[in-house]
């Protein structure tokens, strides 16, 4: 237990240090972009959270499939944690993208393929969370959510492919200064570490909550019987 606590502390410090380094690099190492100025620095956060949103979808779908095969609630806790953190990351993607678009394209929103696919992903996450909140029985909730997570996983590549075929204005692989590229890489790595840490913490919370509910249920049965 002590070892687990020290490991947790070390992991937290590691993620915090990574984030600190990434943000110092974003503001002090990455060169100022000529056309957009300092606003362009949003890109380092935007790309990182967008990647985490997709990783959240992947984790949600795969752990959902694992639940359907294994039928242990442990996998459902992973899937729910991934859905919640994935939704948060996609919300941040849309918010930072909108801020960037306002400076770059002079509009908060445009029906551009990449923006549309991100919005669809956000809706899918929101739908999964809504279904979860509508079902009380844990096993049934896990089963229905797992099927939905698998459907979402199959749908995302199709959404990306469909929107890629439209002509868009979203930059895909822009020419970048090597220092900018390095800062972007560090930023993506640090946010991926934060994403993983948040999922682990949230999964543990869900597991504790399930244990407490089961314990209360058991006590209720014992009290009623006596």
């Amino acid at each position: 237990m002590v070892l687990a606590r020290s490991t947790r502390l070390a992991a937290t410090l590691f993620v915090a240090a990574l984030l600190l380094v990434a943000h110092v690099m974003i503001f002090f190492v990455a060169p100022r972009e000529v056309t957009m100025g300092d606003v362009q620095r949003i890109v380092y956060l935007h790309v990182s959270v967008a990647w985490c949103g997709l990783a959240g979808c992947l984790t949600m779908g795969l752990t959902g499939a694992a639940f359907l095969l294994r039928r242990t609630l442990r996998w459902d806790h992973w899937s729910q944690a991934a859905a919640e953190i994935g939704w948060l990351c996609t919300t941040l993607t849309l918010a930072t993208g909108s801020l960037w678009a306002h400076e770059a394209w002079n509009t908060w929103w445009t029906w551009e393929p990449r923006l549309t696919s991100s919005l669809v992903l956000w809706m899918l996450f929101a739908g999964c969370l809504l279904v979860r909140s509508s079902i009380d029985d844990p096993q049934r909730r896990a089963r229905i959510s797992a099927v939905l997570a698998v459907l979402t996983l199959a749908d995302v590549p199709l959404v990306v492919m469909a929107t890629r075929w439209f002509r868009g204005v979203h930059p895909v692989t822009p020419e970048m200064d090597p220092r900018m590229r390095m800062v972007l890489l560090v930023s993506v790595l640090s946010y991926t570490a934060l994403f993983a840490a948040l999922i682990i913490v949230r999964r543990r919370q869900l597991e504790y909550a399930a244990e407490v509910t089961a314990e209360e249920h058991h006590r209720g049965i014992v009290t009623a019987a006596s």
């Binding site: 549309t116 669809v120 992903l121 809706m123 899918l124 929101a126 739908g127 809504l130 279904v131 509508s134 079902i135 229905i144 939905l148 459907l151 979402t152 749908d155 199709l158 959404v159 492919m161 469909a162």
Partner: peptide
């Protein structure tokens, strides 16, 4: 599920968007 009508539309729209 109780609110099935609204849930169906909410889930269906993003999934069939392609």
């Amino acid at each position: 599920i109780q609110q099935r009508g609204s849930l169906l539309v909410l889930l269906l729209l993003p999934l069939v968007s392609p």
